[in-house]
Amino acid sequence: MPNTVTTFEAAVDAAEHHLINGHLFYGHGMADAYDEAVYAAAYCADLNIIEDDIDWDAPYPQAAQQKLNELIKKRYETRKPMAYLTGEAFLHGFKFYVDERVIVPRSFIGELILDELSPWVKPDAVTDILELCTGSGCLAIMAAKVFENAHIDAIDIDEDALAVATKNITDYQLNQRIDLIQSDLYTSLSADKQYDIIITNPPYVNSTSMSELPKEYLAEPHIALAGGDDGMDLVRLIVNQAAQHLKPNGILVVEIGNEYQHAEKAFSHLPLTWLDTSGSEQAVFLLTQKDLTNIK
């Protein structure tokens, strides 16, 4: 990349050009090379991509340009998600610390939380939330911010992931509202513990898709992606054991990505309600406690 770029806009244009030529894959919070170039240029200039207005005609600092050159070079040489290279990721306006111990935050459940899971719950009446497979803790944090009367239990089997979640929860000063629990799904919960809401974005990628993942996804923890032959191994466990951990009017919200057909087949005996999100109408399903009592 050239060493001298005069404006922020020119820095973005040059970065986008090199990213495109790198034949990279985008799916970790950035839609395409342009979005990633804007973020990278802002990051290297110490700008907050959420809070700071960008002056496209402003001179782009030489030190930032050098940093940007190195960042873009590392991106196309390693094929790692940009979030791992900068140590930060954004989800629906929230910023989180990330590293290779967790998958990069991306979830349609986040936007449903921001909509208060309407019309399925009364926000002020929600006092207990469980998140399974919390990873970086991003959804638990968002839930705590939206449901102000709720306490959240956030579970993950992976000690390394919980270390990342601990940092994020501390950064958001939510240690008194979110308890992190190392557990294999519900195993460490008391049998009588019940919740208004259970949310989960578990490993759900089927084995065929796992074998075809781009390098960017292969940089993420395998344990956080692989869901078995049909992607439903953990989802079955989550659904089949959810009823006893839900209050009578409680709901279970599960994200399954592109595994709609596998989910429909796995849970053909249940009335899955598919929730409309910005990217898909077949990526997140909901079941009520009453629905779940019909499991045979």
Rank of each mutant, 00 (worst) to 15 (best):
K193S: 12
A154M: 02
H17S: 15
H18I: 15
E216F: 01
I50W: 07
Q62N: 12
Q241I: 06
L139N: 07
A283L: 13
T4L: 13
Y97G: 02
Q261W: 09
Q66M: 12
T78W: 01
E51M: 11
S211L: 09
K73G: 04
E16T: 12
L47E: 13
S118T: 15
P202A: 05
L85R: 06
Q173R: 12
A63K: 13
G228Y: 06
D158Q: 08
V102G: 01
F94E: 01
E216C: 06
D13H: 09
E281M: 13
Y84I: 08
L112G: 04
G231P: 05
L174N: 03
C138A: 14
V146W: 07
Y39W: 05
T7C: 00
I197C: 00
N258H: 14
L292Y: 05
W120C: 06
V98C: 04
K73E: 14
Q176P: 04
V284Q: 02
D153G: 09
V102K: 03
L246R: 04
I152L: 03
S211H: 01
S268P: 11
Q289N: 11
T134L: 07
S188T: 14
S136A: 10
L252C: 02
I178D: 05
Y260Q: 13
D156S: 07
L287Y: 08
N69H: 06
Y195N: 00
M82S: 02
V121M: 03
I103F: 08
K215A: 14
D156G: 02
E16K: 15
E212A: 14
T134D: 02
Y260R: 13
I197L: 06
Y97P: 00
D229W: 10
L68Y: 02
E148I: 15
A42W: 06
G137Y: 03
Y43I: 13
I178A: 09
I198N: 03
L130E: 00
W274K: 11
L185W: 02
P119G: 04
A42G: 12
Y204M: 03
T293Q: 11
E116Q: 13
V146K: 07
V164D: 07
V164T: 06
K67R: 15
N240V: 08
K95I: 12
N149E: 11
T288K: 07
Y195C: 05
I181H: 10
G231F: 03
A226M: 08
